[in-house]
Amino acid sequence: MSVVEPLPELSWGTAVSEWSLAPLPLVVTVWSVGLYAVGVLALRRRGDRWPVGRSLAWGVGMLAFYLATSSGLAAYDTVLLSAHMVQHMVLSMIVPLCLALGAPVTLALRTLPARPRGWLLAVLHSKVAKVASFPPLAFGLYVLSPWALYFTGWYDASLTSVYVHEMMHVHLVAVGALFFWPIVGVDPLPGRVSHPFRVLLTVLTLPFHAFLGVTIMGQTALLGGDHYPSLHDGPMGSWLPDPRADQELAGGILWGAGDLVGLVFFVILFAQWVRASMKEAEREDRRLDRLEAQARADAKANE
């Protein structure tokens, strides 16, 4: 059973002071950033370039992951539903989006030795990878899993079991990655579709976050059952907000943050579409130039 330790009132100061050195997030963050840096340095040593923007995206994504799982935000995620909802949005949207833009698969393919690179390619071409990255399936998991989280016994279980709580964090990142990676990422993954279809999938996600947020704000039953009201009977009761008001705030965070990040995602995707169109136009211009040069050469030879 998970025991909620008494905490002072949430503020910017306590968000820093209640920081914890959770072993699993720390290990994952250090190894992920370290291996990525090793890959970038390996490219530079052999004279190849790696876009700085990709490195920054990976760093921001891992920083967001560590903040969401180890900072004061993580300490309060079982005390305030609103704090949990901020954590939810960071793990399910910001972290996967940034990691996808970091293109770690491309980096690995360019730096790994022959045998590990072959293993990675085998995974990318496997049936499991193709099924998991199938866009309609990834879209369905992404928009429906939050409903399953909050309107089944799953969320209640996450408040009483440390294991279920941590698996919920893993699930949020994994499902977000399945959705974002083939759409906005530059890695050679199965499930990549044309840019118009990517934009369509992005637009379709916006109403689902809004509808879920409004539903949470409007329902009379409290998420987590008696968990949040029971905290008022302890030492935190003097500063905890009314559970109903906190749930309304949590729904508003889900609604507003979902739309905001979704719009940022849309802008990034649109910029990628424009860039891809410009590159395609350049390739077509070069092809036409070659054909024209070949035609002139043939005409000159026939004179």
Rank of each mutant, 00 (worst) to 15 (best):
residue 279 K to Q: 15
residue 272 Q to Y: 02
residue 281 A to H: 10
residue 297 A to V: 02
residue 279 K to W: 00
residue 289 D to A: 12
residue 262 G to M: 02
residue 255 W to I: 06
residue 275 R to W: 03
residue 270 F to M: 15
residue 284 E to K: 04
residue 272 Q to P: 00
residue 278 M to T: 04
residue 285 D to A: 13
residue 295 A to D: 02
residue 284 E to V: 11
residue 299 A to S: 14
residue 272 Q to T: 09
residue 262 G to N: 07
residue 256 G to E: 07
residue 290 R to L: 15
residue 298 D to E: 12
residue 284 E to S: 11
residue 280 E to W: 04
residue 289 D to E: 12
residue 271 A to M: 14
residue 291 L to T: 01
residue 295 A to H: 08
residue 281 A to D: 10
residue 281 A to G: 03
residue 299 A to I: 04
residue 259 D to I: 15
residue 261 V to G: 02
residue 289 D to M: 14
residue 297 A to S: 14
residue 294 Q to L: 09
residue 283 R to N: 08
residue 280 E to N: 09
residue 258 G to K: 01
residue 262 G to Y: 06
residue 266 F to D: 00
residue 288 L to P: 01
residue 288 L to N: 12
residue 287 R to E: 15
residue 297 A to K: 05
residue 293 A to K: 04
residue 267 V to Q: 05
residue 296 R to W: 07
residue 285 D to C: 07
residue 291 L to G: 06
residue 267 V to T: 13
residue 266 F to V: 01
residue 293 A to R: 12
residue 271 A to R: 15
residue 293 A to G: 04
residue 265 F to D: 08
residue 272 Q to D: 11
residue 270 F to K: 07
residue 279 K to H: 12
residue 286 R to C: 05
residue 265 F to H: 11
residue 257 A to N: 02
residue 270 F to A: 09
residue 288 L to H: 13
residue 287 R to T: 05
residue 271 A to P: 06
residue 259 D to L: 15
residue 284 E to I: 00
residue 272 Q to S: 07
residue 287 R to H: 14
residue 281 A to M: 06
residue 264 V to Y: 08
residue 276 A to I: 00
residue 280 E to V: 08
residue 282 E to D: 11
residue 299 A to Y: 13
residue 269 L to A: 07
residue 295 A to G: 03
residue 292 E to M: 10
residue 274 V to M: 15
residue 298 D to C: 03
residue 284 E to H: 14
residue 294 Q to S: 11
residue 273 W to P: 00
residue 287 R to G: 05
residue 261 V to W: 08
residue 272 Q to G: 14
residue 255 W to A: 11
residue 279 K to P: 02
residue 263 L to N: 04
residue 298 D to F: 08
residue 286 R to Q: 07
residue 293 A to Y: 07
residue 257 A to G: 01
residue 266 F to H: 08
residue 296 R to L: 10
residue 293 A to P: 01
residue 275 R to H: 04
residue 285 D to L: 13
residue 263 L to S: 12
residue 259 D to C: 13
residue 271 A to H: 03
residue 275 R to S: 09
residue 268 I to F: 10
residue 292 E to Q: 02
residue 294 Q to F: 01
residue 265 F to E: 01
residue 287 R to F: 07
residue 276 A to M: 01
residue 295 A to T: 06
residue 283 R to P: 00
residue 268 I to C: 01
residue 260 L to H: 09
residue 274 V to A: 13
residue 293 A to S: 10
residue 296 R to Q: 10
residue 256 G to K: 06
residue 281 A to N: 05
residue 294 Q to N: 02
residue 285 D to G: 09
residue 295 A to R: 15
residue 273 W to C: 02
residue 275 R to Q: 08
residue 279 K to F: 03
residue 294 Q to I: 05
residue 257 A to Y: 02
residue 261 V to L: 13
residue 260 L to C: 09
residue 294 Q to E: 06
residue 296 R to I: 08
residue 296 R to S: 08
residue 284 E to G: 03
residue 293 A to M: 03
residue 281 A to Q: 05
residue 271 A to C: 10
residue 272 Q to C: 06
residue 260 L to R: 10
residue 290 R to T: 05
residue 288 L to Y: 09
residue 290 R to Y: 11
residue 291 L to Q: 14
residue 276 A to Q: 11
residue 298 D to L: 14
residue 261 V to M: 13
residue 294 Q to R: 15
residue 267 V to K: 04
residue 264 V to E: 00
residue 299 A to H: 09
residue 259 D to R: 09
residue 268 I to A: 10
residue 285 D to E: 12
residue 258 G to Q: 04
residue 265 F to Q: 05
